[in-house]
Amino acid sequence: MRPARIVVPETAKVGEIVEIKALIQHPMVTGHTAAGANTEPRDIIHTLTVTYDGAEIFRADFMPGIAANPYVAFTTVATVTGDIVFTWTDDKSEVTTAARTLRVP
């Protein structure tokens, strides 16, 4: 598990569009250098999936062009109180999950 940081509003009204921002610590090793010589094999987070109350709301395919310690922001419509769960998977099959609860009173 890698350090990760998810920022979600504490509460939202039903139907409100909320912005979700997330960071994770990962070097995103590209596997190539400017000179074209391989130094370290590629090791990047290739997939991020996000579920909200159990259903997938967002998915991303990362390539080596995504910056180290990847940042992503997107929106979702608040429906019910539930967990927003992030799952990042890297080339070494290391999986990091982190979650935040969005309360919808």
Binding site: T30, G36, Y52, F58, A60, A67, V72, A73
Partner: peptide, 29 residues
């Protein structure tokens, strides 16, 4: 997509109607 990076595709972001808004932000190389 990047015109000059060694790999043209930088990333793909898959949205659903539940996003409410078609918006994404990220940091690229």
């Amino acid at each position: 997509l990047s015109e000059q990076n060694p790999i043209a595709t930088i990333g793909r972001f898959h949205l659903t109607p539940r996003a409410g808004r078609a918006f994404v932000s990220t940091s690229v190389r």
